[in-house]
Amino acid sequence: MNWRMLRVLIRTSEVVAGIGLLLIVLSIFVGESVSAGTLWYIEPMAYIGAGVFIVGAVTTIGVYQFSARKNPVGISDDRTWSQVTQDYFDTFAHDIGRPLRRILGKQREARALLNETGEVSPHMVAELLDEIENQAPNFRLMIENVRVLVDLEDQRAEPAVEPVDVAAIVRNVSDRYRPIARERGQDLVWWCEPSEFGLVYGDGSAFDHMITNLVDNATKFADKHIEVRLTRTEDSFLVRVWDDGKGIAESHLDHVFDRGWTPELSARAEKQSSGLGLFIASTLSNRCGGELLVESQQANGTGEHSTIFTLSLPLDNRSLVSG
């Protein structure tokens, strides 16, 4: 049962209880006794009213208790706790984005001057500018991760369902991360099979976010190559992100999707990332009716090493959403 239905049920049972009360009150003025000394001595309308009131009141209390168990924060306000927090973080995201925009703007102006006049050309400056530029997707992802995290706290939230060009999402994410991969000496390629992939029904922004986190993760750990491949089966589509990094130890595979886990954590080294990306991608994939799996191969004499994350999601998510 979704929350909209619960609200309707509460309102309906409150109205029923109200009608019961009204009948009891009205019975004094408009009803008449059937016969003294019998069950109908007071007034039949009062009995009926009392019955209606009890049904309405019991239902109201029952639904309130049920909803309180599922939602400790309550649903008295039309806006959920998550929506309120969401608003806060949207403003926060805007505020944190502003200085970043200024930095990026200055950086790009400086680069233009460098290219046009050649007067400002120290190699170190160019490297620094590149570094700033390449940090931008990280900032973007961090901001987005905070927003999605808050969203995930809301157990009642249902994934949106819309027609989605998932190939375009993979293309956009790959385009965004390609310069970063190139800067790190990696080659990022992507493709989809079949080439005319068509639309799927699901939560486009969640797809975008999951794929972004997987590609971002691959750029952190790949050695030279990253592949992003989009395929489909009869009822689902698969996004497979492969990298030729050194791989993940088998004993750590179970923890890859834990909140806050990073490879550095297991090595007792300083964390290089938040450890939220894969947790978020995995949680989102479950919410969207799919799953995220990981396979990894570490170099054991053969020299072969790689990690594959496979995101599997239904082609049509419309049945997942109630109402």
Partner: peptide, 10 residues
């Protein structure tokens, strides 16, 4: 897209 590969199947 600069990174787009054309698969053998195509």
């Amino acid at each position: 897209s600069e990174g787009e590969l054309v698969p053998f199947s195509r």
